[in-house]
């Protein structure tokens, strides 16, 4: 019973600690709902994105490229590339949760988003004495104010999108939202260098058709960021959680 109680209290603590990120998941979920509805997706498709993918930046990236009439392969590769950072999340949760039963790890993977990851991994590093049950309880607790809110906010956004007149230039909210997500993530010189290289390379490759320039620009900028970090000997800083 003691362990059931302690994992329940870890669950409640996780939910409390992740609470402020409700203010991130809510507005960005609603923004995706509005933009995707304005772009012409029906309610089931809008909700499909938020339930199946649960990754705001990649969902908005896919929407923008679909609006630009990019080929489906480019839409997919670009949106997947935006999510590659989650391989790092998966790897860094593995030492903490790797011993859990497969079905629990599968559930953790489904809800392993920027905010749940960032809040949990900071807690695990801060309290290494936590048991596996407590760590799992804590992670699932962090999901409470984020995952349901993300899905419900998308739904509210989709309903709003049907009401907002379609001649409003709502599509420009997407680049603004991306820059708003990127700016707080510019924590080190390496991040700034990667973002700067990303802009410069995007301009260099702007002449390529079908948004083909995005992949070389993104890969080039990743290399710039990694190289600057290697030369500066920078240490990994966990994300602040505001970059969903």
């Amino acid at each position: 019973m003691a362990s059931a109680n302690s994992s329940r209290s870890a669950f409640l603590q996780g939910a409390r600690d992740a609470g402020p990120f409700l203010l991130v998941a809510g507005p960005f979920g609603a923004l995706f709902g509005v933009v995707a509805t304005e772009a012409g997706l029906n309610l089931a498709q809008v909700m499909g994105f938020s339930v199946v993918v649960i990754a705001g930046a990649s969902q908005l990236a896919a929407m923008q490229l679909m609006l630009d009439q990019a080929p489906a392969v480019i839409v997919l590769l670009s949106a997947i590339a935006v999510n590659l950072r989650m391989a790092m999340y998966s790897a860094s949760l593995a030492p903490h949760l790797g011993a859990a039963p497969l079905w629990k790890r599968a559930l953790v993977a489904y809800m392993n988003v920027d905010q749940t990851y960032a809040v949990s991994v900071l807690k695990y590093e801060d309290a290494p004495e936590m048991s596996l049950a407590q760590k799992l309880g804590y992670f699932f607790g962090t999901c409470v104010p984020i995952i349901p809110v993300w899905i419900i906010a998308t739904y509210i956004g989709a309903l709003l999108g049907e009401v907002i007149p379609s001649d409003w230039d709502i599509a420009f909210a997407v680049p603004v939202a991306f820059l708003a997500m990127v700016a707080p993530a510019l924590r080190t010189a390496a991040h700034v260098a990667a973002a700067f290289a990303s802009v410069v390379l995007a301009i260099v490759f702007a002449g390529l058709p079908y948004n083909l320039g995005l992949m070389p620009a993104g890969i080039g900028a990743m290399i710039v960021g990694a190289e600057v970090e290697r030369r500066m000997g920078a240490r990994f800083v966990p994300p602040a959680g505001g970059s969903k």
Partner: peptide
């Protein structure tokens, strides 16, 4: 890990730059 860490800041600015300019 060093490369994966920079995926969001590497991809998202390139994605929005043409639409902003």
């Amino acid at each position: 890990l060093r490369h994966l860490r920079y995926t969001p800041v590497a991809i998202l600015p390139a994605l929005v730059t043409p639409g902003v300019l």
